[in-house]
Simulated assay, not measured.
Amino acid sequence: MNLNQRISGYGRKLTKSEQRLIDELQTRYPQGLLESATSLAKKVGTSASTVVRLLAKLGYPSYAEAQIEARSEVTARLSSPATRADAVIADDASVRSCLANALLHDQHNLASTFAALDVAAFEGAVRLLTQRKARVHVTGQRHAAALAGHLSLHLNMCLPDVRPMSGGGPLLMEDQLLWIGENDVLLALTFRRHALATARAAKYFKEKGAKVIVITDGPSVAAAASADHVMLARTSSASPFDSYTAAFSLCNALVTAVVQRRRKELGAALERGDALWEQHWNDSAAQAGRSRRKPSSAA
């Protein structure tokens, strides 16, 4: 429920100062809420404590919580960091307030993401990832690349056939789509600004009878139209740049659920992994020893 909805549902009588504040906030919402309580109070000739009390009456736990909502509205309306910068950067923000605001936004993103999560979609995604003969392809471009790498690394320890998909390297995205069929599952991560390649890959998987799971920041993104299951993560931030803390947490939850369903296979896989790493380090140490013993050539 945003500010305007709270005001519409507030049935009590307002004082003159409170009415002036309401008028100012509605006229300049959401940007008006990004100012400090002191600055906002000066604009309408009242006190900062009156501002804080009014927002408390409207149901906000704190002024900071109201500002989180305002920033969320701003970032939802403005698509790029350049257009968001002036709206979300305060002139008088201290370094400590930046620290506190970042934490508050991430806490808000986490709580909102998990409260609104489609649990049926989450369960369906886990079933698809762990089904017999599934080949799991993980893709994420630009901002989603770090998330895709995180998922690829950890799902590879749980599942026998995990394949990272990217637009770089010797194989372009189109080359990696060559053998897609009914046993394939695409796990696609896409966030503003959404990569066209991800949407094209999702559409192609769907056309070939494969399954598609999408983790994104909004239900209307192009890739979601091809998805069997969609999971949404909030990305609101105190800065012009989106925060992916909630998305990472959702990915961690997905890995945890896959681990639970593959716990028997995981134990054996981790033992093989440890043996491979031990051999790798032994070979590296032996190679380093040979290099040190090699006589230097005469000048």
Rank of each mutant, 00 (worst) to 15 (best):
A269R: 15
Y60K: 04
A87T: 03
V119P: 07
A286S: 10
R77M: 14
V162N: 14
T198Q: 00
M157W: 14
P219Y: 01
L34Y: 09
T50L: 02
L186F: 05
A246M: 06
L14A: 10
A286Y: 12
N109G: 05
M231H: 09
G59H: 04
R127Y: 01
G168D: 15
H229L: 10
L55F: 13
H105G: 03
P81A: 13
V126H: 00
H143I: 15
A93P: 03
I7H: 04
G11N: 15
N2G: 04
R28W: 11
H150Q: 12
Y204S: 08
A246S: 07
A121N: 11
Y63N: 02
A37I: 13
Q279Y: 11
L99N: 09
H108N: 15
G140W: 01
R263M: 15
L147T: 10
L40I: 08
L14W: 12
P160A: 07
T15N: 04
S296D: 10
V52Y: 09
H280S: 14
A201Y: 08
H154N: 13
R28Q: 11
L147S: 00
V74W: 02
D106H: 04
S296G: 15
T245K: 02
L34H: 14
L250D: 02
L186H: 08
L276W: 13
Q67A: 09
R20A: 14
S97V: 10
L266E: 13
S8Y: 11
A121K: 01
G168I: 12
A197G: 08
R71Y: 02
H194E: 12
T130K: 05
A66F: 00
S17Q: 08
S80C: 06
I213A: 04
A246K: 07
N109M: 02
G168V: 14
A102S: 08
R12G: 08
R263A: 15
Q107V: 11
A223E: 06
R71T: 08
S236N: 11
A202N: 03
S239I: 06
E174K: 12
K264H: 13
V185K: 00
L250F: 07
I215N: 03
L232T: 01
S239P: 08
A90P: 01
R290P: 06
T113E: 10
A223G: 03
A115K: 15
S243L: 04
A253H: 06
A87S: 11
A201E: 00
L3F: 03
A275S: 09
N4K: 15
S166M: 12
C251W: 12
H108V: 13
K43N: 12
R20Y: 06
S239L: 13
N183H: 12
K16W: 14
T83Q: 13
A134H: 10
L250K: 07
F248D: 06
A87G: 01
R163G: 06
R234D: 11
A269L: 12
K211L: 10
P295L: 14
R127V: 07
V185R: 03
S220G: 10
G169S: 07
V138R: 01
R290H: 11
V221D: 01
R142I: 06
M165Y: 07
D118T: 04
E18H: 10
D92H: 12
L189H: 03
P164Y: 05
A90T: 14
H280I: 11
V51S: 08
D228K: 00
A102E: 07
A146C: 03
L266H: 08
L155C: 04
R262H: 05
A222I: 05
S297F: 13
S112Y: 09
A41N: 02
